[in-house]
């Protein structure tokens, strides 16, 4: 069990898929205009990654090497379709907002990445934990980005108007801002990691 905790924590911090591995960027930027969208998208990715990794790990010995990528893609697409059906049925407004980006979870490099890098060589339960928490790590980054964008751009958080009176920074709602915010986040985390490494080396 101690093993699993480490796996989970790593996915959120040291090996965060978005900020450290720079994966899963496409959708990260597209849905971060609103915090609610980020939350739903993040949970969707966590769910799909966890279950895909779990399923693939279960089938590990059975999958012929030749069609490995194909089967992985199939399993991932399977779970994404389930998530999409669920959203359409129970959260139709959000489903409309997320639009094609739910389908694009299939091509989200995080999921394929975890399937190849972890699920293929590990037992089902750790694969589930690793997959799920990689999605959570992704979710947290998305929430930070969308917090900045939604607050400055709309003055709301999760759609709730905070009633603060300041000129809305419309640029935050537009694509360029997503790039700038994530650039700054990556810069910040990279700089901290470099400093930490330097400290380790000198001590």
């Amino acid at each position: 069990m101690a093993d699993l905790k480490v796996v989970a924590r790593n996915q959120i911090t040291k090996e965060n898929q978005v900020l450290r591995q720079i994966l899963g960027i496409c959708s990260s930027l597209a849905v971060t205009n609103l915090m609610m969208n980020s939350l739903v998208m993040g949970l969707g990715v966590a769910f799909v990654t966890g279950l895909s990794s779990f399923t693939i790990s279960l089938l590990n010995k059975l999958i012929p090497q030749r069609i490995r990528m194909l089967i992985q893609t199939f399993v991932i697409a399977f779970y994404v379709i389930l998530v999409n059906l669920f959203l359409q049925a129970y959260m139709p407004d959000i489903s409309k907002q997320l639009g094609p980006y739910v389908g694009l979870i299939i091509t989200n490099c995080i999921i394929m990445g975890r399937a190849e890098a972890f699920a293929a060589q590990n037992p089902p339960l750790p694969a589930l934990v690793d997959g799920f928490f990689s999605g959570i790590g992704y979710l947290l980054v998305l929430l930070v980005i969308s917090f900045i964008r939604e607050f400055l751009g709309f003055g709301t958080l999760f759609g709730i108007d905070l009633g603060l009176n300041f000129t809305r920074w419309t640029l935050m709602v537009m694509p360029p801002a997503a790039f700038f915010v994530i650039a700054i986040l990556i810069w910040f985390t990279s700089a901290r990691t470099i400093k930490a490494e330097q400290k380790e080396r000198s001590s």
Partner: peptide, 22 residues
């Protein structure tokens, strides 16, 4: 500056290009 090399600067450049394209 440390930490900016690689993806950091790539995103900044892309952001500026995106701004121009707007």
């Amino acid at each position: 500056p440390p930490g900016l090399a690689g993806p950091g600067i790539a995103f900044l450049i892309t952001g500026i290009m995106a701004l121009a394209f707007v």
